[in-house]
Write a protein that binds this DNA or RNA. Structure first.
Lengths: 332, 332
DNA sequence: TTGTATGCGTTATCAT
DNA sequence: ATGATAACGCATACAA
């Protein structure tokens, strides 16, 4: 049988409550008894049954996270950062994958709520189709959205300041001599697609860059390849192509190269996110890095705030990204 | 207050035990009462408190997993597969990141055990430094190693058949006309480094390929770049370079390209694992794909077997990989 | 400061 | 087949 707190108490010659208090530090315990208890605990190799504790305290020390797809190269870094941020306060991450399906996502959200997680960090699959399920769980457990958010639900959100990211990119492109730029990004189904599109025009204008009509498709390498063809069909290429994320940018590079256009020699290309492979690509991608650690910390902070403060107006926290200049915009 | 099974029982006009049995199906319950109970449960929106259930049944329905580093591009696909395999039986994955540190890993293993996970799936950070902690938790909960294993611990393992993978690669290289090949891989600190090295010679011999002295460093793009230089310094390049994993292969490609050597035109290059970026790289990497879904299923199966059967001789399951031919070995 | 007794929500045991 | 009751391991209200 496992060693329980009863065994510890017995061995230390105290009551169970004293043992509990001595170990948790919830209430003061005499110095001698404290040492007796801790000694007994160590001697017996006692380790708390977190389940029983959670049942009693209503706190599991676990936080649930649902990502659209963990194999999507953007999320592992985020998961890692959140796992790390949580472990700072002794909590653990219960990770679920939504398989890009709002229905699966809904099941996962409920399952996590049933396991009494202390909070839920969610990157919703869809801006609209995920809304109901998210609102439902939010009624029973604190929820923070990360990266993406759903429309029509007043929930906290933490992500990157897309407008600021695009300003960084525009500034850099202007610095290296670009005059004409075009955006290749995702449409407005996702919240990030919308805000990146909205941020692009003003950012370009601020740095006196001439823009052409944006090409909007979806986040993915295939769309980037296709967009490169569309762009060439349009006429002379711009000086620079701004990808809505790294995958699109990589697709653009590949599409261009297949047509004999060299990057960065003939055209500059930038990405967004700094997903793992951006540095591995050839040419390595100039991109905007999301501050994973800060995003993670903010998520955790909002979660704790929600637990403490109860109902509040939803907070939306957009953190500043940083520019990472690599070979795709560096002419030798 | 949350709705508990008491509420359901009351509304259905039965005892709590009957309600429990009707809902769980543990013991037969009269048809009428069953319908009354399920109706009441649905009407009240009852959802079981998994914690309380777990405390009683000693089964949490969660499986812990510890990976060396989730941002390492090999692991997300594995995590996804395991998450999926588990969800088939209604279980969930508690994911931890060891931050490449055996000490952190040890803490995570204990934390998961304290949370009463039903099983543990671990890709150990180090073949030697991870052994003690792994053996310790294995004493209290079923453990299955995946991908890598520790020496000196009799624990189940599921992974890929490295020798078979290298035979696939050698066969393919022979098919496309290569005569001389060299291995660039990791040393023998990791179990995979050891077995891939061991499998290379026989695989090459089987297909009448001439081999040169292998270059052994570590899994990582930097080593690949450096190895490319070492290889060029050695004299004329071989027809093909076999990377110990995809990162090394990518580094080799980059190192060669920096020196003006073209892939695949001048030299063929292969990887191992089919990590996410292998398909995204340029040129896309010919590699050996690990059967993630099968590996995941086997992990789960062994876990369940261990729960059921108690102590057994450790099982080591090496699954057959498949060859993925891409541009890095395809001359146009 | 310490001990006693109760309950968290559920399932298992033992009756009937 | 059904119900009363105890117990899982822990933390806390209350009493001393």
């Amino acid at each position: 049988m496992r060693v329980t707190i009863r065994d510890v108490a017995q061995r230390a010659g105290v009551s169970v409550s004293t043992a509990s208090r001595a170990l948790s530090g919830a209430r003061p315990v005499g110095t001698e008894l404290t040492t007796r208890v801790t000694a007994a605990a160590r001697a017996l190799g006692y380790r708390q049954n977190r389940l029983a504790s959670a049942l009693r305290t209503q706190r599991t020390g676990t936080v649930g996270m649902v990502v659209p797809q963990i194999s999507n190269p953007f999320f592992p870094a985020l998961v890692e950062a959140i796992e790390r941020s949580l472990s700072g306060s002794g909590r653990q991450l219960l990770l679920c994958d939504a398989q890009r399906d709002p229905a699966v996502e809904a099941v996962r959200l409920q399952a996590l709520a049933d396991r009494q997680v202390d909070g839920l960090i969610v990157a919703p699959v869809s801006a609209v189709a995920s809304a109901d399920a998210l609102a439902a769980v939010a009624a029973e457990v604190p929820v923070v959205q990360v990266d993406r958010y759903v429309t029509d639900a007043d929930l906290d959100w933490v992500g990157v300041d897309d407008a600021a990211g695009l300003r960084l990119i525009a500034g850099h492109l202007a610095d290296v001599g670009a005059r004409t730029v075009v955006l290749v990004s995702a449409g407005s189904e996702s919240s990030t697609g919308r805000s990146r599109l909205a941020g692009f025009g003003p950012a370009a204008a601020r740095h006196r860059l001439t823009t052409a009509e944006p090409l909007l498709g979806e986040y993915g390498i295939d769309w980037g390849v296709r967009a490169a063809d569309l762009l060439r069909a349009r006429g002379p290429l711009p000086d620079a192509i701004v990808g809505g994320n790294d995958e699109i940018a990589l697709g653009v590079v590949r599409g261009l190269r297949a047509a004999g256009v060299r990057v960065p020699d003939d055209v500059l290309v930038t990405g967004f996110d700094d997903a793992g492979f951006a540095a591995l690509a050839d040419p390595a991608l100039t991109t905007v890095r999301q501050p994973h650690a800060l995003i993670a910390d903010e998520c955790v902070r909002l979660l704790d705030l929600a637990r403490a403060g109860g109902e509040q107006a939803p907070r939306r926290i957009a953190l500043a990204p940083t520019l990472v200049v690599r070979a795709s915009t560096t002419r030798s």
